[in-house]
Amino acid sequence: MPRKTMIEAIRDAMDVAMGRDERVVVYGEDVGFFGGVFRATQGLQAKYGRSRCFDAPINESGIVGSAIGMAAYGLKPCVEIQFADYMYPAYDQLTQEAARLRYRSNGDFTCPIVVRMPTGGGIFGGQTHSQSPEALFTHVSGLKTVVPSNPHDAKGLLIAAIEDPDPVIFLEPKRLYNGPFDGHHDRPVTPWSKHELGEVADGHYTIPLGKAAIRRPGSAVTVLAYGTMVYVAQAAAEETGIDAEVIDLRTLLPLDLDAIVASVKKTGRCVVVHEATLTSGFGAELVSLVQENCFYHLEAPVARVAGWDTPYPHAQEWDYFPGPARVGRALIETLEA
């Protein structure tokens, strides 16, 4: 099977979706002629024309608001916000409009849009090129939130998101665009061509939203992670020698609670890992669900490893980013508790 980078897989997903359904349109800032600042839409305008893939004014609320109108008409817009850090001007449109259109109109109007946003840190992006705002979406009734961690999933999940009849927030960990990253910033990055999950089938396939994947089977402790943290957790397990079961959630909402509960009931311990800030982060929801559903199976408090409750700094990148050392310590502490 051909191997692709995550960027190529995402581009391939849009190419496949646009080829199959002429209602799919792709736009955003620099998305058209130039092919996106991360090259995710390269070649799509040339292939499908300016009516299907085009540049937008620098106006996030306008991009999402117009997409909602297009969806109400009957198109399936897949739009891009250049960085998740810049989605805030569109937050009104996402939370008050896209999320609730089906509900408030009792299905009279629907909103099958996908909003792609590069997310996450580990790239010296500083305060406004590193944020992980997923908890601001999972808290919103009516949205679905997806975070892929590899090229194979990115393509299958994005096609599923585009075909989904409801609005989907598609967060792409930009640190993973060109290769997996386990937090060891001092080591050379391995490209996706050397990773089995870089294998991306040609043509159409989907990965259902709401289904997690076990990346590393284990019996001692369950690690709940998504995005870049999947690789950090795997590295921490290898380096501590702890037989951790690493679950890649893939979709945060709807959440694969069954997979989580089955694993924690087996291991009796759980560590939740995310890049986003700790307080009221998505980890709090995960810990709460594990406590509610696995209380009598738990042998230790559920731990969280997350970004500190500060804005994402620049110079202190690796003191902020939850790397394998911090995750490893949490694994040891949870096992010794």
Partner: peptide
């Protein structure tokens, strides 16, 4: 919010 949505709907009509 509906003001820009209307423009998007109109854009969709033109695209189609």
């Amino acid at each position: 919010t509906q003001y820009i949505q209307a423009v998007g709907w109109a854009m969709a009509s033109a695209i189609s």
